[in-house]
Design a protein around this nucleic acid. Structure first.
Lengths: 202, 202
DNA sequence: ACGTTATGGTAACGCTTGTTACGAACCAGG
DNA sequence: CCTGGTTCGTAACAAGCGTTACCATAACGT
C-alpha cells in the first residue's frame, strides 16, 4: 500500500493541467506555478508528485500519446475498409475540429520543448515512428501490390502532410479550415488509387 | 543628423549576432545577454538599438522570413520551367540539408512562441500566407487549365506537406532524410501531371 | 489510543531574466 | 578650449523561474 490518496489520479490531473496551460499560454508560460494554480494546488504538491519539471512534462507527453493513440485505434477499428481506416486515422491526426486545434497547439508546444530536451525528443521520435508504422501498415493493406519501399515512403509523406496540417492549423485556423484539411488529405490519398478514396459521405 | 556612429550597421551586426545565437541555442536561449555577448557589446547597447526584447524577437522573425524569402526568389528565378520552379521552391522550404535543419528548428521555435504571442502570430500568419500565394502562383503557372479553387487547395496542401517535412525533420532527421523529403515532395507534385515532375537529374 | 509515516503547504533559496537609472566617453559647434 | 548632446557601458533593480528544506496534518498499523 503505497498511497493513501489516489496518486495516479493526481498525476493525471496534473498532466491535464499541464495541457491546459500549454494550450493557453504556450511553452514559455508553462511554469510549475501555473500548472499548480490550474490544478488548484501548490508547487510543493506538484513536486511531491513528480520529481522535477521534466518528469511532469514526460508524463504529460505520454498521456498525449495515449490519447491520440487510443483515438486512432477507435477510428481505425470502426472503419469498414483499409482505405477508410487510413483516411480516418490521418484525418484524426490532423486537427479538423475546433477542440482538436487545442490539442494541436499542445502538440506543437511539446515539439518545441523536445528541441531543447533530449528526453522529450526521444519520446517524440518514438511516438512519431510508431505512428508512421501504423500508417505504413494501412498503406500496405490498401495497396498490397506495392513494394515495401513505396509503402514506406508513402507513409512518411502522408504523416508529414498530416502533421503539417496540424501545425499550420494551430497558428492559422482561418486559412487551414477543417474542410481544407480534408481536401488536402483526400488529394494525397487519391494517389493510392480509387479504392483509398472510398469513404463515407459524411 | 540622427546618428554619429552608424546605426544601421549596428542593427545589422546585432542581427547577425541574433541569428547566430538563435541557430546555436534556439529560441529559449535567445536572451539579451547572449545576443550582446555574441555581438561583442553589452545589453545596454542592445536595448539602445531595440526598444524591448519583443522588438528584437520581431526583428529576428523578420530575419528568418527574409532569409527564406530571398532563397525562394533565387531558386525560383534559376528554374527553367514553372514546374522546376515549384519543385525547387518547395524543396528549399523543407529542410533537405543539415544546415537547413538548423533553420527548421528555429522555425519551429518561432511557431511555438507565436502560439502565445499575438504579434509573432500575426507575423507568422502573414509570412505563411505570402508563401502560400507564391506556391499558388506557381501551381497556376504549371496548370493554367485548372480553376483557381483547385490551384488554391493544391497550394495549401503542398505548403502543409513542406512545413510538415520541416517540423518532422527538425526533431527526427534520421527518419526524414533529405532523400525522403524529395520523394515525398515529388510524389505530391506528380499529381500536377508529368510536366511538374520535370526536374534536373541532381 | 498513540506513534509513525505518508502527504501537502509555506516560505525561502539561488539563479537568470528583462529592464532601467546613471555615469563616462565621444563628437560637434562656438 | 570649452559646452551640449548623443552613444554606449556599468551596475543595479524587481520579478520570475525551478528547486529545496522544513513544518503541519491527516491517515494508517498496532
Amino acid at each position: 500500500m503505497a498511497s493513501r490518496r489516489d496518486r495516479v489520479d493526481q498525476r493525471q490531473r496534473l498532466s491535464a493541467a499541464t495541457w491546459s496551460v500549454l494550450a493557453e499560454r504556450g511553452l514559455p508560460g508553462l511554469t510549475l506555478r501555473a500548472v499548480a494554480e490550474r490544478a488548484g494546488c501548490t508547487t510543493g504538491m506538484v513536486l511531491h508528485t513528480f520529481a522535477d519539471k521534466q518528469a511532469l512534462l514526460v508524463h504529460a507527453r505520454e498521456l498525449l500519446h495515449q490519447r491520440t493513440g487510443q483515438r486512432a485505434d477507435i477510428v481505425q477499428a470502426a472503419a469498414d475498409t483499409p482505405g477508410a481506416a487510413l483516411r480516418a486515422v490521418l484525418l484524426q491526426a490532423a486537427a479538423p475540429t475546433a477542440e482538436r486545434q487545442e490539442e494541436a497547439r499542445v502538440w506543437v508546444g511539446f515539439l518545441a520543448a523536445a528541441l531543447a530536451d533530449p528526453v522529450l525528443a526521444e519520446l517524440h521520435r518514438g511516438y512519431n515512428r510508431r505512428f508512421v508504422d501504423r500508417v505504413r501498415g494501412l498503406v500496405a493493406a490498401v495497396r498490397p501490390d506495392w513494394p515495401a519501399a513505396d509503402c514506406s515512403s508513402t507513409a512518411t509523406g502522408l504523416v508529414a502532410l498530416a502533421e503539417g496540417l496540424n501545425t499550420l492549423t494551430a497558428i492559422d485556423p482561418a486559412t487551414y479550415s477543417g474542410a481544407a484539411q480534408r481536401v488536402a488529405l483526400d488529394a494525397a490519398l487519391a494517389r493510392l488509387g480509387p479504392a483509398a478514396a472510398d469513404h463515407p459521405s459524411g
